[in-house]
Design a protein around this nucleic acid. Sequence first.
RNA 1: GCCGAGGUGGCGGAAUGGCAGACGCACGAGACUUAAAAUCUCGCGGUAGCAAUACCGUGCGGGUUCGAUCCCCGCCCUCGGCACCA
Length: 850
Amino acid sequence: MDKDKKMYVLGMFPYPSGDGLHVGHVRIYTAVDVMARYFRMKSFDPSTRSTRSGLLQARVLAPMGWDAFGLPAENAAIKNKTIPQEIVPKNYNNFREQMKALSFSFDWEREFATTDPTYYGLTQWIFLELYKKGLVYREQVPINWCPKCKTGLANEEVLPDGTHERCGTATGKKDLPQWVMKITKYADRLLSDLDMDLGEDFDKGLSFDSPQLAQDSQATRSLDWPRGILEMQRNWIGKKEGVRLFHKVEGMDLQLDAFSAYPIWCFADTFMVIAPEHPLVKELVKGSEYESSVTKFIEESAQITAEQRTEEKFEKKGVFTGRYTNDPFNPGSRLPVWVANFAVMGFGTGIIRCSAHDPRDYEFAQKYNIQLKEVVERIDPLVPVNAHTNEGVLKDSGPFTGSKISSQTIEEVKEWIEDQKIGRRETTYHLRDWVFSRQRYWGEPIPLVHCKTCGVQALPEKDLPLELPDLKSYEPTDTGESPLSRVTEWVKTTCPKCGEEARRETDTMPNWAGSCWYHLAFAFWKNANRQDGEKSTHDVLEVYRKSQSDTPYTDFWREVARPAIDKYLPVDWYLGGAEHAVLHLLYARFWNKVLYDLGHLSFTEPYLRLRSVGMVLAPDGRKMSKSWGNVINPDDVVKQYGSDPVRLYEMFMGPWDQVTAWDSRALVGMRRFLERVQKAYEDSPLDQETSPLLLQKLAKLVAHIERGIVEQKFNTCIAGCMEFVNEWKNGSLVLSREHMGNFAQIMCPFAPKTAQKLWEIAGHDSSSKVEALGWPQIEVKEGEIGLPVVYAVQINGKLRAVVEVASEVARDKEQVLKQVRASQTVAKWLVGEPKRTIFVAGKLVNFVLV
RNA sequence: GCCGAGGUGGCGGAAUGGCAGACGCACGAGACUUAAAAUCUCGCGGUAGCAAUACCGUGCGGGUUCGAUCCCCGCCCUCGGCACCA
């Protein structure tokens, strides 16, 4: 094996809740373990066979850790009247034991929790790197607020009807200063890199000459992610190139800017709409006869929750402001300005130019009798053409009258707009900046200090990690501030710049922070459980912290972390749930790009191949949920059936990427199969020659499993194994000792315990490990075995017979046709000479009579 | 409305242009057993037939092809995600 090659297989690390591992987790991590075990065997180098640790030299990384900060643990601790520091380790220790019980062969000496100060010190260091790069800023951002509990709430604590999930009070919003990350600065790259050629980053993991991986090197080496998830990322970023258009309000010194993504249709616009929450609305009507009606409308709109607003039946409503603007597209015309609830702040400018060519605008204009104009002849006489089609020939459109709409004329219009100085090109994004503050206890403290004279100061690297103080009471405060703000002795500090008294930032980081870079940490992480006597990451970092350097973390990153990261990253296979399709993946990609720009990483995309698992439903076909009482606990089934049958069942139950309902009865089939194989091994003498048919099947099975594993078609791999055993035992066929060993080897990724037992029954002693000699290679040359080839014979495309042809002539068309025609059944159907004969070598003959 | 994934026996599913229903579950019959469980053997899409066999059959309608579960066009349904996005 090429020493520069590696394989990094990663399952999205779990949030260790008190309920323990879920069968959905088991489905993901069994797949990760199957792949990891396969790649380890595959990476075995026969030339190092004599060295004791040929396997250990292979650079296959399959780590596991715990995403342990965040709201659920904090709320669970509050509920149980304890502290997160106590329940979190309890939870992840339980997760680890459950995983070990399932024989997951993860690199346990690399395990960590994001709540470990050694880990979150590095998270804080990365935060400061982003901060120093100017990607973190402070802004007033509204949070969800429960006026009764006097507490800030996460979105998930607010029910769809806008009430607080715990007390039922209607929630509101409260403005708080928050730290925000400028992810929008990276919007373009986050979008275009989805299609970028990743070059050699992609090649590093190609050493295992597996079927699909071999294909990759020939295809474009852009991200190999499910199409749907790529699409969701694109939509979430939501890049729109358009124009910002300027309008003067008649009789006022006021400009209204509107964004348009379809500028070529602007000649049709006949009115404008402004969002009720737009800051200029009040100014527009101040002191006019419209003031009261508009104010009333604003108040009404404010009471409607965002949820209600997005309901389908939601009625488009508005009121006239009494104001008009000029229309730069139709000089001399004026556009009435309405306030309407279908305009929202936060997209575009909050002000829209409206026309008959937008169904929503059209509906609104019809309702309020606003004059309309159309610039493209209708196709359907009942409705105006929709601008989104961007098709048609313009009429009544100033200098563009008579132009056919095309990408070229759209460009011309944009140019014309800029020439006329009535607007300018602008790109908008759906993506917003990322609110990074949480007014919560259980998260990484944000390592900033507020000084009266020096303003906000970053904590020096030497002071990291900034540890979370142990608190007995950590419930949210009634001002909405973080619970940390109450801990006077912790908050009180000195300014790193001037040394005067200063206050620590009391907000903590969101749950996402730890998961933004954990895949990097696994590359260099060493925990204290190591057997090999090497220093743990904690100890190494301590040495740096106690050194003279002012930048111990930067030094550590450069000297320790970076070389290991370069060795293993990017992640070759990333397996997890589709629920992270947008946020986690986007945030992690964002941090990766920033770290790349800072020179801390050598690659721009963290996850090369992404696969999402299908949900496991309860036996009743519904989602598993405590409230339905239909949750299957993996502990119970492992106890009842054993770990190998559970692993096998999770892989066998259906296509890995599709939803399937759990069926405990089907599980017994897995145990039966494993017992049957073991019996078959015990009954087989070890001194036989393998039957030719079986040898051929075994060779095919090995190839099938290799392809199946990299394509995540685990279900058919297992079916293939079952089929093989059925062939073996139902016929009077025999397997040699060597081939019995081979079958044990290919079973190993799926059912490692059973595979080891089979290996031993096949004559190896227990000090020999089934995975230790690599992946079996069985070569059968075509024709060597001399088995007859089965031809399907069709008449007019309809199957009429099946004919065996001796292997020596099985590829010779003339000979095959002769033999096929000799069959009685074929002769019966073959009336007259065929007009055409289709011959597919080794497979099929089709006589076409008509 | 848009985007995505699906629709095949009683059930989970297999077959990605070439023998539809592999493999497993459930079910039925038989063997073993005093009996049951377990295990083993056989059967198991529908219709007709004692049978050989024939016809029908992969959500619906059309098309391409010697040949379509698979590719193309138009619909229907289920699940997941997003949405007054200007």
